[in-house]
Amino acid sequence: MILTTVLALALSYLLGSVPAAAWVARARGVDIRQVGSGNSGATNVLRALGPGPALLVALFDILKGALAVWLGSALGLGPFPATLCGVAAVLGHNFSPFLGWRGGKGVATSFGVITAAAPVAGLGVFVIGVAAILLTRFVSAGSILGAVAAVLLTLVTAQPVWLILIVTALTALLVWQHRENIRRLQAGNERRLGEPK
């Protein structure tokens, strides 16, 4: 079982490291790391290439997180190690060997993990995150609020302690990945969704 767990974690990391944003952008003749924020994620693809490619990237990144959890379960792992496979996918997304150990900020992939592990909490995260983005037009703020809401929702829905701790760790990583966005929000110069550069 230890060997199976290690194999599942490694496969999940590799799955997460597939840089959908970079590859979709490259197919359009764009190096996503050289435009906009330089981030390999759906928001930067939206600003660089439009809603169609961004939606494709977002769905793929969500699926990476969910598939990693399901992979762990399919290999006979329990809920805890299967969810750790989801964490491995997030780490692969954020620190991809295909992008020189860079990547995205893990928002969509973390959402996929949370939804696969705790569907009710995932639904709540989606509603709160999207509502915050629509109200403020700050993708970063919506992402952070959604992540914080994930911790609260796992508490409110009485999820296992180990899952609450995993979601808390994913939230902390997501907030850290958004540290530059937080500085810009505090300074009042963060770009709103749809706002020209």
Rank of each mutant, 00 (worst) to 15 (best):
L84M: 15
N181C: 00
A108H: 06
V24R: 04
D31L: 10
L163I: 03
L77H: 05
A58H: 04
T154Y: 07
V35W: 11
N181M: 00
A66Q: 10
D61Q: 13
G103Q: 04
G72Q: 14
L55S: 09
A187Y: 05
P97L: 09
V90M: 14
G106Q: 07
V120E: 15
S73H: 13
G194H: 12
S96P: 13
T154A: 11
T136F: 06
S96E: 09
N44S: 13
R47A: 12
L84N: 13
P79H: 09
G52A: 06
V151C: 04
G65V: 02
T168G: 04
A82K: 07
G29W: 02
R137Q: 14
V35Y: 09
I182C: 07
T109C: 14
P97V: 13
G29V: 11
A108F: 00
V167Y: 10
G72V: 08
I182G: 08
L3A: 15
L165V: 07
L153D: 03
P196N: 13
L134N: 00
L153R: 04
N189R: 03
A68V: 12
P119M: 03
C85I: 03
V156E: 03
G78Y: 07
T109K: 12
P51G: 11
A42V: 10
A150C: 01
G29Y: 05
L155V: 12
Q177S: 05
R184V: 03
G194W: 13
P160M: 03
A88D: 02
N44M: 04
G92D: 07
V113S: 09
P97A: 10
A27I: 11
V161Q: 14
A68T: 14
L155H: 05
R33K: 13
R102Q: 13
R47C: 10
E195R: 09
A117I: 04
A68P: 08
A149I: 07
L163F: 07
L123C: 08
W162R: 01
L135R: 10
P97I: 14
G38P: 12
P81I: 10
G124Y: 09
F111N: 03
L193H: 12
G36P: 14
V24P: 15
L11H: 03
P81K: 12
L170M: 08
Q186F: 07
A58E: 02
V57M: 12
L63W: 11
S12Y: 06
I144Y: 00
A150M: 00
S143A: 14
S40I: 00
G124D: 09
V130N: 02
R192T: 03
T136W: 04
A116N: 09
R192W: 11
A8Q: 12
D31F: 12
P160Q: 02
A8L: 12
D61I: 02
Q159G: 09
V107C: 00
G112D: 01
V45D: 05
